[in-house]
């Protein structure tokens, strides 16, 4: 049972907009939970595109959390930034769970639909990706946001530009260099 009301979420978003760091911390788990639920339900509809097409999911979570409350674009932008971060954590959790499964436990009779979604190698890669992203975030937070929007949020260059308030050219450039950088880091991590 979730008790957070749309009003509550709207207020948190306003606070985020006003620069309240704590509001982000309070909002993130809400968004996270919502997305994780949705992702669990929607996991099977993937079409296969070069990035995760999770924009619809984010929109959906947004509608659910915000209810009928009117929220302006400024807040929507904040929401999207938080949502893609949440998406990242969802995948990370999933990958970690995969790794745990690899280390322990055998098959249980009930999890036909949980198995084989991500291979062990992919789980390792996702975890390495997250670690690399954290390092990137430390040096260049905007790059890391671009990756979150493009990869985890499945947004187009233009959507990413709108959400982050930067030019599409900057997004494109950042996406290219960040991928190259992350790939190198991940490879180093995984072969180390």
């Amino acid at each position: 049972m979730r008790v957070e009301t749309p009003e509550h979420v709207t207020r948190l978003l306003k606070d985020v907009h006003a620069g309240d760091r704590e509001a982000i911390d309070r909002l993130l788990p809400l968004v996270y939970d919502e997305l994780r639920d949705l992702a669990r339900q929607q996991r099977y509809r993937w079409q296969g595109k070069p990035a995760l097409n999770t924009t619809a999911l984010v929109h959906e979570a947004y509608l659910r959390l915000a209810g009928g409350a009117a929220i302006d674009w400024q807040n929507r932008r904040h929401f999207f930034r938080i949502a893609v971060k949440a998406m990242r954590y969802i995948l990370l959790d999933y990958a970690r769970a995969m790794q745990r499964e690899k280390r322990g436990g055998g098959r249980v009779p009930v999890d036909l639909d949980e198995a084989h979604l991500v291979s062990e190698e992919e789980a390792d890669e996702l975890i390495a990706l997250n670690a690399a992203l954290e390092r990137l975030e430390a040096v260049h937070p905007r790059q890391s946001q671009i990756v979150e929007c493009r990869f985890f949020g499945g947004m187009t260059v233009d959507e990413t530009a709108a959400v982050l308030g930067i030019s599409p050219a900057t997004v494109k450039r950042g996406w290219n260099v960040a991928r190259a950088w992350l790939y190198r880091e991940i490879r180093q991590d995984l072969t180390a």
């Binding site: 996991r43 296969g48 995760l52 619809a56 995948l91 992919e122 991928r179």
Partner: peptide
């Protein structure tokens, strides 16, 4: 990097309706 991310994304989280 390009095919790597494409594959990872492709295989990782199936979602769209």
């Amino acid at each position: 990097a390009q095919p790597f991310f494409a594959r990872l994304a492709d295989q990782v989280e199936p979602i769209v309706s």
